[in-house]
Design a protein around this nucleic acid. Structure first.
Length: 747
DNA sequence: TAGATACAGCCTATC
DNA sequence: GCTGTATCTA
């Protein structure tokens, strides 16, 4: 219902839009797909649409959900909307899929067997967990590395396939044919740990949504009347299902995306989601944004020429009203060093022409390629920043510190406990941890709980017992401390009293000071959050620390990292077969992989506003050995009119005598075997799941028992699962019942 | 429990 | 060719 008195004249924000943009903004009700080519004003449409929703009184902020993939994109949207309406808009659900799902899940955790304070695991935790499960199941982790197992699980989760939806043979020969059972175990273990991984955030909310009896979904329908989705081409099946459930209520879903910029197929994105939109949401309005405001006609022609070689596109033709501009320069060079030299020189030339270095980017296919440029830029004294290196919250010392906090907040978090139990070294070696681990498994209890029980017995050596008792008391004290003392102060106390800070202070290695600084930065960052729990949530869901520097520097990053960004001048080195398109991408997924590489080329070219430089070298050092290389097929796909070819004669054909097969063999080492999901017959061998039902106490006073360490003895007293035993040689001891066996069986 | 040695794996990467 | 990790040994 539009209040006509409110909108007397056409709002100014509509006037600045072109026809297509305007259509996308004004189609507020019903499903809408906005196919937004690169540089066509996608963000403007998204934010204006939101402002329009509010201005027309179609919705209050609290009735709008806006979903992005990255925190950066969410922040950007918040910022732009605030800018448009002249103040921050609050109360709308704006965030990443995972952040929004986590928010819902915290409220309804018990519906999927979790407590509201569940931990969110990252890849590192997942890998540790899988390693443990592999060991438990006696699966050779040499043959089936945890990384491989994890990626199989993640891919299943991307497709919303929970273990119950899989048949044993769906795992192929992975993990010796026991992959599905392993996956089920992994899920069981997560529940025990009161934890979930990123995939679970979505899958658990889907489970909750699908059960109508809890009323959560209908509540959401009542609440969220309008749904906005950014980068729709990157959604995976789970995200698609999640969105579809939410959209069922009001059908007001607006997805913005570009099938030509889908570059995340390898992490589960389903380009089919965007290609199928009309079918999934009947009556959908499709708006194409094709007028590009970013790049010159030559750059657009180059990008369009390359992408036109792809099949299976929705099809768009980018055009620009702008005239003139330079052709894309395509240069052949002798080797990588020369390439770096040339790019360095060109950047210096730009610098002399008073171009800001912030407007210069070098976009590479893979991280390792940045090194050659860094070296060159250092020699030249060109300031640069590498975007997307190791992240703050992934650093060892930060993860250790966070593990301490996690144990205090969520004592069922065994992964965190195991991480810190002997850091700093407390004399708790592998064997002690193994005892705790085994005992926890037989008891079906958490490690902290198990430790609390074991320290009341004589299972452990007195010294170890008192160390653990101390640690348990510390953790308990820190937990109570959090109720009275501020969490920033408490965090410092935890790191101090645990000896963790001291450990690095005593460390004389050169990186120790840096680590101490990072720890300080960590506690500083906490101040912005009301509670320790809130901070931990932030850390799990927002892995980046806000970047501060806006000094003038060349940006060095991967093509993937450049998506969504734009620069006046873009250098695209390494356009060689094998490197780009990446050979592995082609080996692993064939045509689909090649097309994704081509979309990456399209993304790269369309980042440039004024000048784009493509280069390729005739010789390249890969994994240490020199190889002749031939220009990327994408070079040949650039329309002649749009480019200007330069470089020494003959170089552009160098290396073409090397067969693709030879290249493969060298580039990929001995040819990596990719385990196929081939069906295999026969039941997977069952293996222990962590939780086991506790039988009745089988030991009574007088029973003869055998203990691995203390030998034979007679039970004198029973206290639940704790036994007092007079051992024949070791004397009176308290032990856990699970540590002894009836004497006759041991003989 | 640290230090030494062998060995594999080396593309992209969000949350 | 380099790096991280797993395993062995003093």
């Amino acid at each position: 219902m539009t209040n006509s008195a409110e909108i007397v004249a056409e709002p100014a924000y509509l006037g600045v839009l072109n026809n297509a943009q305007r259509e996308a903004v004004e189609a507020l009700d019903g499903p809408v797909l906005v196919l937004a080519g690169a540089g066509t004003g996608k963000t403007r449409v998204l934010t204006t649409r939101l402002v329009h929703l509010l201005a027309t009184r179609k919705a209050f902020p609290s009735q709008i959900m806006a979903v992005t993939f990255t925190n950066k994109a969410a922040k950007e949207m918040q910022h732009r909307v605030a800018h448009m309406v002249g103040g921050p808009v609050e109360g709308w659900w704006l965030g990443t899929f995972h952040a929004l799902a986590a928010r819902l899940l915290r409220r309804h955790a018990e519906l999927v067997g979790l407590r509201p304070n569940f931990s969110i695991l990252d890849t590192d935790d997942q890998l540790r967990l899988i390693k443990q499960l592999l060991q438990l199941a006696n699966i050779d982790d040499k043959k089936w590395p945890a990384r491989l197992i994890l990626s199989a699980i993640d891919r299943w989760k991307d497709r919303a396939l929970t273990p119950d939806k899989l048949k044993a043979e769906d795992g192929g020969d992975l993990a010796g044919g026991r992959m599905v059972a392993l996956y089920a175990d992994y899920q069981a273990r997560l529940r025990q740990l009161n934890a979930c991984d990123f995939g679970d955030l979505l899958l658990h909310t889907i489970t909750i949504f699908q059960d109508a009896s809890n009323g959560v979904l209908s509540d959401c329908h009542r609440r969220f009347r309008y749904l906005l989705v950014d980068e729709y081409q990157d959604t995976n099946v789970a995200q698609y299902l999640w969105l579809r459930l939410l959209a069922q209520g009001n059908h007001n879903i607006c997805c913005v995306g570009d099938d030509d910029q889908s570059i995340y197929g390898w992490r589960g994105a389903e380009i089919g989601n965007i290609l199928r939109f009309e079918k999934d949401f009947p009556g959908a309005v499709i708006v194409r944004l094709e007028q590009n405001y970013r790049s010159t006609a030559h750059i657009l022609a180059a990008a369009s020429g390359v992408i036109s070689h792809n099949q299976g596109r929705l099809g768009k033709t980018l055009w620009t009203a702008a005239e003139g501009g330079e052709r894309v320069r395509v240069r052949a060079l002798w080797d990588g060093e020369e390439e770096a030299k040339w790019i360095g020189d060109e950047i210096e030339a730009l610098q002399r022409a008073k171009v800001s270095l912030n407007q210069v980017a070098v976009l590479v296919r893979a991280g390792f390629q940045t090194r050659a440029f860094e070296e060159r830029f250092i020699t030249l004294g060109l300031p640069y920043r590498v975007i997307g290196g190791p992240r703050f919250y992934e650093r060892l010392e930060i993860r250790d510190a966070l593990a301490y906090f996690r144990v205090v907040v969520q004592p069922a978090d065994d992964l965190a406990f195991e991480r810190i139990v002997n850091k700093p070294k407390r004399g708790l070696g592998d064997s002690t941890i193994a005892i705790l681990h085994d005992a926890a498994r037989t008891l079906g209890a958490s490690m902290v709980e198990t430790t609390l029980r074991l320290i009341e017995t004589d299972e452990l050596k007195p010294k170890i017992r008192s160390t653990l008792r101390q640690l348990m008391q510390d953790i308990a004290r820190w937990r109570t401390g959090l109720q009275n003392t501020g969490h920033v102060e408490m965090a410092k106390i935890i790191l101090d009293e645990s000896g963790y800070t001291g450990m690095w202070q005593a460390d004389k290695s050169p990186e120790a000071t840096g680590r101490l600084e990072n720890l300080k930065e960590l506690t500083n960052a906490m101040a912005e959050f009301p509670t320790l729990e809130g901070f931990l949530e932030h850390v799990s869901l927002v892995m980046e620390l806000q970047d501060s520097s806006d000094t003038d520097m060349v940006s060095l990053m991967t093509l993937h990292g450049a998506k969504g960004l734009e620069f006046e001048n873009v250098f695209l080195p390494g356009w060689e077969e094998g490197v780009f398109p990446n050979q592995r991408a082609i080996d692993e997924t064939g045509i689909a992989g090649l097309e994704e590489e081509r979309r990456l080329a399209y993304v790269g070219l369309t980042r440039a506003r004024r000048k784009a430089y493509v280069s390729h070298a005739a010789n390249r050092q890969i994994f240490g050995s020199w190889m002749a290389s031939s220009p990327s097929r994408f070079v040949a796909e650039l329309p002649h009119d749009a480019i200007e070819t330069e470089g020494e004669a003959g170089l552009d054909r160098a290396g073409s005598n090397l067969s693709a097969q030879q290249f493969n063999a060298q580039f990929n080492g001995m040819g990596r075997r990719i385990p196929a999901f081939k069906p295999v017959h026969g039941e997977p061998a069952p293996f222990a799941t962590a939780a086991r039902a506790r039988p009745e106490q089988p030991y009574q006073p007088g029973a003869r028992v055998f203990h691995q360490k203390f030998g034979y003895g007679t039970v004198t007293h029973v206290d639940n699962d704790k036994l007092e035993i007079e051992f024949d040689t070791a004397g009176m001891k308290k032990v856990m019942d699970s540590f002894v066996v009836p004497a006759q069986k041991a003989g």
